[in-house]
């Protein structure tokens, strides 16, 4: 893209160009948030909307501090996180097992593959009413929904990745007279690992989505999603913005964590 970038950078002052690139992108990176903040503040000062619709940045910050020190924030956070973790572990472990069954056993694939593909066509949230009737709207129903949400992505990627072990490696296993277990341990699992990791990453994203969804749709209980509902019911936009910010930060933390885990697991990979 150098052609286009060059055209754009022609007008910039030379002193700016001489700064180290990391510093430049650091400076530019905070420009937009600051600008948005300024815009927001200006809109509040100009009374674009009444304060209960558009609270000022200061009001939101104040609300956040109040939640942190005096409110139920930590309780809500830990409730959401533990709900998500339980569901994610349940869903991804069973998803891994089912995906391996589909990927490693031809009979398993022929028997269960079509059913799984049909199941996957149904939108995730369509299961909410069913699960709430089967497991209730309380903790069990919520965890079941989170588990269901992380099941499918884990299965799909594990299945596909174990199926895609290249023929030369299967041949190598035959030449080294590997048994079934050796093949799984030394070739199928590590070979499928990049795909499995992709599946687990997307399962993590879905689990977080489903946690918030379960908290919005099912019975009222401590949790970040519950606070969003509370904000809507009481018309407290500042509370909702605080909750959304927390959701963003936690989502970011998860994706960083997943990237870190991926690098650790795939150290052997050339990339």
């Amino acid at each position: 893209m150098s052609g286009i970038t060059n055209v754009q950078s022609r007008g910039r002052p030379a002193a700016w160009q001489r700064l180290p690139p990391a510093l430049r992108s650091g400076v530019l990176g905070v420009v937009t948030p600051l600008a948005l903040l300024g815009l927001w503040q200006a809109a509040c000062a100009a009374h674009v909307a009444p304060p209960h619709i558009l609270p000022s940045p200061a009001a939101v910050a104040e609300r956040f501090q109040m939640e942190l020190t005096g409110g139920t924030f930590w309780l809500d956070l830990s409730a959401s996180l533990s709900r998500m973790l339980e569901g994610f572990v349940l869903g991804s472990v069973s998803g891994l097992a089912f995906g391996l069954l589909l990927g490693l056993s031809q009979l398993g694939e022929r028997l269960c593959g079509p059913v799984f593909l049909a199941y996957r066509q149904v939108a995730l949230f369509a299961w909410v009413p069913l699960l709430s009737m089967w497991f209730g709207g309380g903790e069990a129903g919520k965890v079941a929904f989170v588990a269901l949400s992380s099941f499918a992505p884990t299965v799909v990627n594990t299945w596909r990745a174990t199926r895609a072990i290249p023929a030369p490696l299967r041949e190598l296993a035959a030449v080294l007279t590997f048994g079934r277990l050796d093949y799984i341990r030394l070739i199928a699992l590590p070979g499928a690992l990049p795909g499995i990791v992709i599946g687990l990453r997307s399962a993590l994203i879905y689990a977080w989505l489903a946690t918030v969804g379960a908290e919005l749709f099912l019975d009222i209980a401590p949790g970040i999603g519950g606070r969003l509902n509370e904000g809507r019911d009481k018309f407290e936009v500042d509370l909702m913005l605080v909750a959304l910010a927390v959701l963003a930060v936690i989502g970011l933390a998860f994706s960083q964590l997943a990237a870190f885990g991926e690098r650790r697991l795939l150290r052997w990979s050339p990339r």
Partner: peptide, 23 residues
């Protein structure tokens, strides 16, 4: 020895040689 080395990329050099001794 195959034309392409066909080493398992997730095992070290040592691990690859050792894999042949599994059996």
């Amino acid at each position: 020895v195959f034309q392409e080395h066909r080493l398992l990329p997730w095992l070290t050099a040592e691990g690859n040689v050792a894999a042949a001794l599994r059996r």
